[in-house]
Design a protein around this nucleic acid. Structure first.
Lengths: 122, 122
DNA sequence: ACTCTGTTATAATATGGATATAACAGGAGG
DNA sequence: CCTCCTGTTATATCCATATTATAACAGAGT
């Protein structure tokens, strides 16, 4: 999978990495049971520090996307926690939709966006 | 309008403030032309520093939600920039929906959430 | 033995968030 | 004219976080 880091972004590197991996899982570029590259390999490939990659992996573990095996490294393993996820989604959506509402984006346009994005997801 | 700040949150105070004001506009608690409290008043009421409130107002100005008048303070004035807003919404939604997709939240559940949230918005 | 994995520890640096004090300029109202 | 309230600007300080750097350790595979 191609991972692109924007060094000019104001978003932290480890969060960019986390988000891209989550999107990689959603687009089935990573499957349950797949191993992610080792922290050193990926750090080398991207050109960032090992610890930054490790931090991304640690967050992914805490959020229930991977499990870490000393042998195989970080392995995709989704822990489905629907209630927590739904609560979190709602909070984030409330802010995003408020922005849209203020800027005259209609509910229908949002629904259309959702459809468009979900085409790429499983 | 009631503004609630969570000092235990990991989200920056000025961002919490910004988000709540945007949601206040979306729920019509603030109307076009209304003045926000002065930076010192609001800082006092919430119990945070004047500069933190000022930062929130500055961000709101840059993002096109208010205009600042030396006499009246920050006044709600929406600058509608549909293209920019849509692009930004899409990027944020991509990440959020990816999380949901990974955690087995269906597209239909997302649509339902949108409906639920939009009930409170204009 | 050697090499790969994650993990841990420690340190240095840089950046950003939050606070504190202070001063300045412009408009409002006495 | 003077005072009060606006936003604005300028410093300075403190603390937390992000990032990098070196280094070492333990477990597993070849």
């Amino acid at each position: 999978m191609i991972i692109e880091i924007d060094f000019n972004s104001d978003e932290a590197l480890y969060l960019q990495l986390r988000n891209q991996i989550i999107m990689g899982i959603a687009t089935a570029q990573f499957q349950e049971g797949d191993s992610l590259p080792s922290v050193r390999q990926l750090a080398d490939a991207i050109g960032i520090n090992m610890h930054t990659v490790n931090k991304a992996y640690t967050v992914l573990k805490q959020e229930g996307y991977v499990k870490v095996d000393r042998r195989r490294g970080a392995v995709i393993a989704i822990d489905i926690d629907r209630m927590r996820t739904l609560e979190e989604l709602k909070k984030e959506l409330q802010v995003i939709l408020a922005k849209g509402s203020c800027k005259n984006i209609s509910k229908e346009e949002i629904h259309a966006l959702i459809e468009e994005i979900y085409e790429d997801y499983r």
